[in-house]
């Protein structure tokens, strides 16, 4: 009985901590160059990251960049914004690349800081980072709930 209580107490504490931590651990946001004046919805972003659109809605060239596999922001971005998990996205690109339709595949840049850095210096860039990393060097184009 005692262990049971202790366990549920621990679970409760962990849960409470999780609840407290939740607002601090913010979601993923899609970022562009500070000069980017486009407004995009999730579908338009998904089309750019799947190589189906090569331009921003305003008509300028768009270059999507990825974080490295395994990053939490990448998992979040593909699940919440693109609407496909990473396994599906990987299978999708395997089919496109080896069919000779791999143009427009996002380039892997690095972690969130590296992506922010890259986007801040490339006007055509579109990437995603954890919202806690956002600063004035980039512009938030979309934020995933």
């Amino acid at each position: 009985m005692k262990t049971m209580k202790l366990k549920s107490l621990l679970v409760g504490v962990a849960f409470a901590l999780g609840l407290i931590a939740l607002p601090l651990q913010a979601g993923v946001v899609v970022i562009g160059h500070a000069s980017n004046s486009d407004s995009l919805d999730g579908k338009q972003i998904a089309r750019i990251f799947l190589g189906k659109a090569t331009k921003f809605p305003g008509g300028t060239k768009a270059k999507p960049v990825d974080q490295v596999p395994g990053s939490a922001a990448r998992t979040d971005f593909y699940n919440k914004v693109v609407g496909k998990d990473e396994a599906k996205v990987k299978a999708y690109w395997n089919q496109r690349i080896f069919a000779g339709k791999g143009k427009g595949r996002p380039e892997e840049i690095g972690d969130g800081a590296a992506v922010k850095n890259w986007v801040s210096s490339h006007p055509e860039a579109i990437g995603y980072i954890d919202s806690s990393l956002v600063d004035s060097s980039v512009k938030v184009l979309f934020s995933a709930e």
Binding site: A91, N94, Q95, F98, A99
Partner: peptide, 11 residues
């Protein structure tokens, strides 16, 4: 459907 990537097992 898989003509273009017949040899690519991962697809």
């Amino acid at each position: 459907m898989a003509s273009e990537y017949l040899e690519v097992g991962a697809a």
